[in-house]
Computed example of a mutant assay.
Amino acid sequence: MVVYGIKTCDTCRKALKSLPGARLHDIRAEGLPDDVAQAALERFGDALINRKSATWRGLSEAVRAEAPLALIGAHPAVMKRPLIDAGGTLYLGWGREVQTALLG
């Protein structure tokens, strides 16, 4: 299981602590792999962008208008986190539904 996120993100840390054996792929340091990014965009669409984040609020309207994957590539902190790959199935965030699906 791979958790795509940022190592300093509290929500990513909570997910990692609850998912033994999961490894963190830091998108700020390593980027989001193209195949994962495309699959996530197809599954979650615009929900992949966290429009409540401080990073989002600090962006100009012109930058906000960029395509989601280009935006995440340039500003990784705007991605809603974590993005979890559990055996090929993608989950976004660490809400109750995701926790139930992954933890039972």
Rank of each mutant, 00 (worst) to 15 (best):
P33E: 09
D10Y: 04
S18Q: 03
A15R: 00
Q38R: 14
A39K: 15
A40T: 02
S18R: 04
T11M: 02
D35A: 15
R13W: 00
A39N: 06
D26Q: 03
A29I: 06
L19V: 01
D35F: 06
A39Y: 04
A37N: 10
L16A: 03
L48G: 15
S18Y: 00
I49Q: 15
A15C: 10
G31L: 11
R43Q: 04
A29T: 11
I27H: 11
P33K: 13
S18A: 15
I27F: 09
F44E: 03
A15P: 00
I49P: 15
K14G: 00
G31E: 10
A22L: 06
D34I: 07
A39T: 13
F44I: 02
E42Y: 02
S18C: 07
D10M: 05
V36A: 08
H25R: 09
G31K: 13
L16I: 09
A29S: 12
A37G: 13
R23T: 08
F44Q: 04
P33W: 09
K17P: 00
S18T: 01
A39S: 13
F44A: 02
E30Y: 08
I49K: 15
E42A: 12
S18F: 00
F44M: 06
L41D: 03
A22P: 04
E30M: 13
A15H: 00
G21S: 03
F44T: 13
T11P: 06
G31H: 12
L41C: 08
L41E: 02
L41Q: 12
E42G: 07
L19S: 01
D10K: 05
L32F: 08
K14W: 00
D34E: 15
L32S: 12
A37D: 11
G31F: 08
A29K: 10
E30G: 05
G45P: 09
E30F: 11
I27K: 13
R13Y: 04
A29D: 14
V36F: 05
G21A: 02
R13E: 02
E30N: 11
L41Y: 02
D26W: 01
D10V: 07
S18H: 02
C12W: 04
G31V: 09
D26P: 04
L16W: 02
R43H: 07
D35T: 14
R13L: 08
